[in-house]
Structures are given as structure tokens and as C-alpha cells.
Amino acid sequence: MSTPFEIESFDEYLNTIHSELGQNGEGKRRLYFRGQSKRATEGYPLTPSVARYPYLEKLPLAERECKEAEVLETFSNHLLTYVQHRPQTAWEELAIAQHHGLPTRFMDWTTNPLVALYFAVRNTSGRSADSAVYALISNPKRYADLKRGQAAQVKPVGDAATESASEPEDDAYADFSTDDSTPVAATTDTTTPTDSADLSADVGPLELPTPFKISENIIYDPPHVSPRIRAQDGVLLACWQPMRPLDEKDYLEIVIKQAAHEDIRRRLDKYGVFDKQLFPDLDGIAKWLKYRAYEINGTI
């Protein structure tokens, strides 16, 4: 994959986002960002957390989808004990499951490029490798627009094919859920699910497929089940082929050179894009105090 941008300072990153990617607030199309402390080329491809389990690639597509659905159903049966409002759709249920660490076909992204930069550099002390921010440029449909009938309708996929799996990336957004930094190698899948059911009729705007039956990637704005999601401007990418990495044509890689990480961390902290703001709870306070008092021996 070609690398169009290599960033060596905080200011250079801001200029790239505003000038090169058009994030200037003047009606440009929406972009989504994801920061990773390890690059996709290091064995951390852009895949959702469910792709971390290679045995799933050996299952027929229908069997794997059934397993995902059964796991979600079991999770959902316990929700009423812990939440005040029961989710109305499988999308809401899966978003809550993702937040609490259940492997899903959702990938965490953000609409805030500084939040993505935080995840790219926050936990890289002592490492000699570069990190990266990924900008999603494929312009996927948004769930909210589909529900309102403001986007072309989506047909559900059938059950008559098997997909190959790829291994996971370093999930820098693990604090939406859980952390797993074991490196893995991606594989390539050349098969595409085919429809076995009668799909002649489009699904209407109020009858969207479940996340397990979509035929293209969809951006989903999750319910604010946690202050973290709101603070991090989090969105979820529902992956219709969750065992495969995103196609390289769907994103741009912005490499953050390792030599710039320490200064970028300090600048992000100065401008309020750091631990205690992005994790508005005791964990965030602890992370922030650890950074200020011990990592940089600064003032509190």
C-alpha cells in the first residue's frame, strides 16, 4: 500500500487533515478516523474483533452468522438486569455488546481526527516503530440515513458461501471494549458470499437487515451507553465481511513517525484531548495522573 502522508509533527498532522483531507467545516463529506499504535502492515489489519478467532474462518458462512446471532441473543437475555432501557434493535444490542468487550463485527472509528491521533500515539512509549491514523474514504452508507429513507436501500445477503478469515489489528480503540495486542498476520480471501434466498425486493427503510445480514459496510452511530463514546465521538463500522480486512482502496494511511510521538502526546494533553477528557471516569483520571506524574514528571 502506498503511503501518501508521513507526519513528523502535531502541526503537520493538523495541516494534513484540514488541507489535504478537506476537514475544514465547509460542507465537505464526512470522514471517519481510526488510530492504531501499530500499522496495518505490521500484522494489524483493519478488521473487527470477531476476526481474532481463526477457527471461525473454517465455518460455513451460515454457521458463523448463526453463532454470532446466538451469542448476541444470550448476551441480550441478560441486558434487562443491567440496563434501564432495553435496546429496540439488534444494532443497539450489538453496540452495547461491543462496548462491554464482546467480539463483534463492529469496528470502532471516530469523527474526531484528534481522538484518532491520541489512540495512535498514547501507548507507544519505548517502541521504535511508527504508528498510524487511518481515514475511511469509501463513504459508506449511514444507518441513520437508511432508517430515514435518505440513502439507497440495502439488500440482505444469503447464506450460501464461506469467507476466509484474516487476523486482527492492534485495537487501539480497545477502551471502547477490551484490549488485545497480540500480533497476527492477515490472509486474503477471494470468495464473495452469494445469495441463496430470493432477494428480488429491496429492504425498506424501516426494515433494515440485522448487522449479520447486510451486504455492504454501514456506519452506525451507537447509543451513548457510556460517557466514553460521547467524549470520543465514537462511531461503529458494521463490516459485512468481518473476517476480511478493509480493502486498501477504502482508506488512507497517515503514518505518524515515532520520533514525533512524545511531542504529540504533550500537545494533545495541552489541548484537552487526553486521558481524563476521553475517559470521563476514574480510569481516565488514573491514566491522566499516571502520564502527568510519572511518565513526564510534570505538574498535576
Rank of each mutant, 00 (worst) to 15 (best):
8 E>Q: 14
34 R>E: 00
261 H>M: 01
281 D>E: 12
164 S>H: 06
260 A>T: 06
38 K>F: 03
107 M>L: 15
227 P>Q: 12
119 F>N: 02
60 P>T: 02
192 T>P: 00
75 F>G: 12
165 A>E: 08
254 I>S: 09
35 G>K: 12
127 R>D: 14
267 R>C: 02
237 L>G: 03
285 I>Y: 08
277 Q>D: 15
166 S>F: 04
98 Q>P: 01
189 D>R: 09
278 L>K: 07
68 E>F: 07
271 Y>R: 10
72 L>T: 08
295 E>L: 06
146 L>I: 07
275 D>H: 15
200 S>A: 04
103 P>I: 14
137 I>F: 02
76 S>T: 04
15 N>L: 03
83 V>S: 09
179 D>A: 12
278 L>E: 12
5 F>W: 03
112 N>M: 04
110 T>E: 08
113 P>C: 12
240 W>I: 01
190 T>S: 08
115 V>F: 10
65 E>W: 08
128 S>A: 12
231 A>F: 11
291 Y>R: 07
138 S>F: 10
205 P>H: 15
19 S>K: 14
32 Y>C: 00
54 P>S: 06
224 H>W: 07
254 I>P: 10
144 A>F: 03
107 M>R: 07
180 D>V: 13
29 R>T: 07
43 G>C: 03
231 A>V: 07
277 Q>A: 14
114 L>F: 12
256 I>W: 08
256 I>H: 09
40 A>R: 06
60 P>D: 10
228 R>V: 15
267 R>W: 01
272 G>S: 09
136 L>S: 05
289 L>Y: 03
142 R>K: 08
290 K>N: 14
30 R>P: 00
291 Y>P: 02
